[in-house]
C-alpha cells in the first residue's frame, strides 16, 4: 500500500503538427457516437431521463433514498401523525416549514392547525425527515417538485401533504415495552437508521 509520485507529460509528434490525422480521429469518435445513438433503439448511450414523456414514470429513475416532495404520515385513524413539535421547522436551514399548533383534545393532545411547506424555498436537504421524532414527515415520495405557474401552487398545506401520506410506523407514546423486538433493526420503514 504505497503512495508514490508520477510525472505525466505529453510529447508533440509530427503527426500532431499536421492537424488532419487527429482531426480525423476526433471526427471518427464523434461520428461513432452519432451513428450509435441515431440508429440503435433507445438512442444508444443517451441516458437522459425523459421527464414529461407519456408512459415514462420518473419514479423508476430515482433511488430509494431520493429526497423528493414532502408528505405527512397518518395515524391509525387517518388523522395527521404530526404533533407540531416544530423540530422540522427548527432544523430547516431554509426556514420553509410553517406550523401552527392546536389542541387535539385526545391523548395525542397536540396537532398542527396548519402545516405549510413552501416547496420553492425548500433546499431538499432532508433534515426535516431526520429531525422528525414521530415519523410524521417524509420525503420518500420519489416525486420531484415540478414547476408551477404561481408561487401559491408551490406552497403545500396539510391536506396536500397528507394526500401523499400513508400510515406511520411510529405510534403515539411509543410501542411500549420490548419495542426493540417489535421494531426490528432491518425494517426499512425505520428510515435513516444508520446502525
Amino acid at each position: 500500500m504505497t503512495i508514490s509520485v508520477k510525472k505525466v507529460s505529453l510529447q508533440r509528434t509530427t503527426r500532431d503538427q499536421i492537424f488532419l490525422p487527429a482531426i480525423l480521429e476526433g471526427l471518427l469518435t464523434t461520428a461513432r457516437h452519432f451513428f450509435k445513438n441515431t440508429f440503435t433503439p433507445g438512442h444508444g448511450d443517451v441516458e437522459t431521463i425523459r421527464y414529461g414523456e407519456p408512459g415514462v414514470d420518473v419514479k423508476d429513475y430515482y433511488p430509494e433514498r431520493f429526497r423528493g416532495v414532502h408528505r405527512l404520515m397518518h395515524r391509525e385513524d387517518g388523522s395527521v401523525r404530526c404533533v407540531a413539535c416544530m423540530c422540522c421547522s427548527t432544523v430547516c436551514p431554509a426556514r420553509c416549514i410553517y406550523i401552527e399548533a392546536e389542541d387535539r383534545r385526545d391523548d395525542a393532545e397536540k396537532a398542527p392547525r396548519s402545516f405549510v411547506i413552501d416547496e420553492l424555498k425548500c433546499v431538499v436537504c432532508g433534515f426535516c425527515v431526520e429531525a422528525c421524532p414521530c415519523d410524521a414527515i417524509r420525503m420518500d415520495t420519489r416525486e420531484h417538485w415540478i414547476p408551477t405557474e404561481t408561487r401559491a401552487e408551490a406552497v403545500l398545506g396539510k391536506v396536500e401533504l397528507m394526500s401523499r401520506g400513508e400510515q406511520s410506523v411510529a405510534v403515539q407514546g411509543g410501542l411500549g415495552a420490548s419495542y426493540r423486538e417489535q421494531a426490528p433493526k432491518a425494517d426499512p420503514r425505520f428510515t435513516h437508521d444508520p446502525r
Binding site: C85, C87, T90, V91, A131, P133, C134, D135, V169, A170, V171, G174, L175, G176, Y179, R180, A183, K185, F190, T191, H192, D193, P194, R195
Partner: peptide, 20 residues
Amino acid sequence: AKREVYNSIEGMIAHFKLIM
C-alpha cells in the same frame, strides 16, 4: 436510531436536544 427515538424517552430526549 429512529427506533429509539420513536419508542424510548432517552432516545427522544437525545434526539430533541441534538436537533434543538
